[in-house]
C-alpha cells in the first residue's frame, strides 16, 4: 500500500532523514519506533505532504505521492493524527471532529462515520459543544483520533499517541484504535514507547538519528537483544 524508497528529507540545508526504505502493506499494523529526534515526525510530515523530500520516492497504491500537495494526499486516503494533537482549540469538539471530514462529499457516510466515532469515544459525545481547548489531555487525544477517523482514511498514521498521558487513558484509546484496525484500516503507529508500539503492531521499523536501523515482525523485535537493551532497558 505504502512504499518508501531511498527517501531523503531535510529542513533547508540540514538533512534529517537518509535513504529511508519502508513498506506498509494493506491491512497491516506497522510500528515506527525510535528515540527523540530520530526523525519519525519528519517522516510522517513528508508522507502527508507537509514537507517535500529532497529525493526518493513515496508510492501509495502504486501512485507516486512524494511532493504532492497535502490536500491531494488526504484525498487519496492518507490521514495522520499528529503529535501534540493539533486540535483547533477555538472550535467545539463537534466542529473539530467534523473538520476531519472536510475533504469528503459523501454526506450520508460522513453521518454514519460520525455516529461510529462517538460510539467509539462516548466521552466525546458528552462534550460536543465544548471548545476543544478546554478538554483534558486524554480527551484531546480522543478528539484528535476521532477527527482523524472522520477522514475515512485507508492509511491512518498516529503520531505519539501516548505522549504525556496516563497509561490507563493510553490503553483506553488504543482499545478504540484496535476497533478501527479490526474494521480493516491500515495503521502506522509512531511511538517513543517502544513496548506499547510493538504490542499493537504486526511489523516494526526502528529509526535511529535519521537512518532506518532495523525492521521485522514485531514479536521478533521484542525478543531482539539490541532492541531490549537500547529501547526497553531490559
Amino acid at each position: 500500500m505504502l512504499e518508501i524508497k531511498n527517501l531523503n528529507v531535510g529542513y533547508g540545508e540540514v538533512q534529517v532523514l537518509w535513504d529511508i526504505d519502508m513498506e506498509v502493506k494493506e491491512g497491516e499494523v506497522v510500528a515506527l519506533v525510535g528515540s527523540n529526534g530520530a526523525g519519525k515526525t519528519t517522516l510522517l510530515y513528508t508522507i502527508s505532504g507537509l514537507l517535500h523530500p529532497m529525493s526518493g520516492s513515496i508510492r501509495f497504491n502504486g501512485q507516486e505521492i512524494a511532493g504532492l500537495p497535502s490536500e491531494e494526499i488526504v484525498d487519496l486516503g492518507i490521514t495522520q493524527v499528529p503529535q501534540g494533537r493539533k486540535l483547533f482549540a477555538g472550535m467545539t469538539v463537534k466542529e473539530n471532529i467534523l473538520m476531519g471530514a472536510y475533504h469528503r462529499k459523501d454526506k450520508k457516510q460522513i453521518q454514519k462515520d460520525y455516529e461510529f466515532v462517538l460510539e467509539l469515544f462516548p466521552r466525546m459525545a458528552e462534550r460536543l459543544s465544548q471548545p476543544a481547548g478546554s478538554l483534558s489531555g486524554g480527551e484531546q487525544q480522543m478528539c484528535a483520533v476521532a477527527r482523524g477517523l472522520m477522514a475515512a482514511p485507508k492509511l491512518l498514521m498516529i503520531d505519539e499517541l501516548s505522549l504525556g498521558l496516563a497509561p490507563i487513558i493510553v490503553e483506553n484509546i488504543y482499545e478504540a484504535v484496535s476497533e478501527v484496525i479490526k474494521r480493516g484500516t491500515t495503521v502506522l503507529i509512531v511511538e517513543q514507547d517502544v513496548m506499547l508500539a510493538l504490542e499493537q503492531a504486526d511489523r516494526a521499523y526502528v529509526l535511529d538519528v535519521g537512518h532506518m536501523r532495523m525492521s521485522g515482525p514485531a514479536k521478533e523485535m521484542m525478543d531482539n537483544p539490541v532492541i531490549k537493551e537500547a529501547y526497553l532497558g531490559l
Partner: peptide, 11 residues
C-alpha cells in the same frame, strides 16, 4: 488555529 493541522485535514 493550526495551519499544519488544517493541511492534514485536506484544506
Amino acid at each position: 488555529e493550526d495551519e499544519d493541522a488544517a493541511k492534514m485535514m485536506g484544506i
